[in-house]
Write a protein that binds this DNA or RNA. Structure first.
Lengths: 256, 256
DNA sequence: TTGGACGAATGGTCTAGACCGGTCCATACC
DNA sequence: GGTATGGACCGGTCTAGACCATTCGTCCAA
């Protein structure tokens, strides 16, 4: 298992992937002990700090856990790593093995409402693009999704046909806009008559409503989305972790 | 700003907290540049690696972001740091300024059903503790919560009165069980007659249903919870981030 | 038999350097 | 005026060590 020192990807990444390979191969069982950092450092012929960077990475991902004085162990069982990741509807459906399609209900420019302007951190009345789509998987309607984007970020966006193309894909390729994080609020509601019709539900029906504010890595708001999902065919999964000590400190401060 | 080298908390934590202090004081504005790692290393009189450990911590928390060749900058605006953290109902309500109370509907030992046994990774029929509570904030019913715990983990748990005490608190103090992560599935549904009665809703009403599997840091399942929340008074917030490159690799492997 | 001391191994923290490629700007050259 | 170019500075990666507290097995003395 020689590492490539001339490779574009750093050594600690290669170490991480080598370890991941072992973990995924089933060579280890849950709670088995991994070789110590010093042994791996010798085996890969890199410094211990480099091994640590790889292993801390895996700890953060929940693949392994470490105990001072004892060693590092395989976490078990594997938790779905995608639970906490930001994905587009298209990706989402594809990962579940479906074929995503869309019906564009509306695509126009309008002045930002107070709600949208507040979310996107622009002045009220600033022009925004509104894209409303019925989203389907294998021709089954799953959600009604209305996206608001600041016009300034993506002029001429509507030259694309979003019945076919993926919004995130276009944002990345044409505008160099890379979503990095999102804040999402989920609630339940009864479907409105129009939603029931679009989603092919019989009233009364419960639906999931979602508001999402997506940002790039600098924290700049990119899009603000309202969605209504059929709950019988779409569930939201999330992964939670305990607050880190420093965040507890921070939250205590904020509540003063 | 001298660091305490004899203190129980490590230097990088002290550096992190010093930087956090600056960030929270409002001394910096969003996208302001922080001093470089080398300068901070000199200012705090620690090595650059120690400063980096503090700053990478802040990057992971979303407080700052770094750009090669340019510097490190204040992220903006601050996103609620609690979105992705695992909290108990009691903590949750308190952090929103309410007074949590509970009415115990059921507290008994029974044989694990297939669903519960699968979730908790025990054999079907193994004894589990079932605790069902109506959870209220300021006397307003918010949720019906049914918790399943392996009896083996917490014998004599029901000596406590969970109309008053917090389950997580008792698990921590009496059994040294520390929840570390949880996997949560959220869906919408129409309230059942019993749920509507307990939650004081008029049918038809939409509610949020949640299943949560909580684990300790080794990945061992601790509790499996079914909850039904009033949606008009309780919303779920979550924070999403893009998948890390290594996770993409891993997911690609899994789909082979 | 018990209990404590010791020592080896572990992960956690920390140092003082090094080199890399990206970014930015002043300066020199066309 | 426009364009190279070189240097200063940035974060990212990496090394080869060091010391610490915790853990646990062993061995010895009471």
């Amino acid at each position: 298992m020689p590492l490539q020192r001339e490779a574009p990807n750093p050594l600690y990444m290669q170490v991480k992937e080598a370890l991941l390979e072992d973990l995924l191969s089933g060579r280890y069982r849950p709670h088995d002990r991994l070789p110590s950092e010093r042994e791996l450092s010798h085996r890969f012929n890199v410094s211990r700090m480099t091994v640590r960077q790889a292993m801390l990475n895996l700890v953060r991902d929940g693949a392994i856990y470490a105990r001072v004085g004892k060693g590092t162990f395989v976490a078990a069982p594997k938790i779905d790593q995608q639970l906490r990741t930001l994905t587009s509807f298209s990706q989402d459906v594809r990962s579940r093995g479906g074929q995503p399609t869309s019906l564009v209900l509306e695509a126009r420019e309008m002045a930002a409402s107070t709600e949208v302007a507040t979310a996107l951190q622009v002045a009220a009345g600033v022009p925004v693009l509104v894209l409303s789509r019925l989203r389907m998987a294998d021709s089954v309607p799953l959600a009604v999704e209305t996206t608001n984007l600041p016009l300034a970020l993506c002029p001429n966006l509507f030259q694309h046909d979003f019945g076919v193309e993926s919004l995130y894909q276009v944002l990345r390729s044409d505008y160099d806009i890379h979503p990095a994080q999102a804040e999402q609020v989920i609630e339940a509601a009864l479907a409105s008559p129009r939603e029931a019709e679009l989603l092919e539900l019989t009233s009364p029906a419960a639906v999931l409503r979602m508001q999402r504010l997506t940002r790039d890595s600098t924290g700049r708001p990119i899009e603000y989305v309202h969605s209504t999902y059929r709950s019988d065919r779409y569930k939201f999964r999330s992964l939670l972790t305990v607050a880190t000590p420093s965040l507890i400190v921070e939250n205590a401060r904020n509540s003063r």
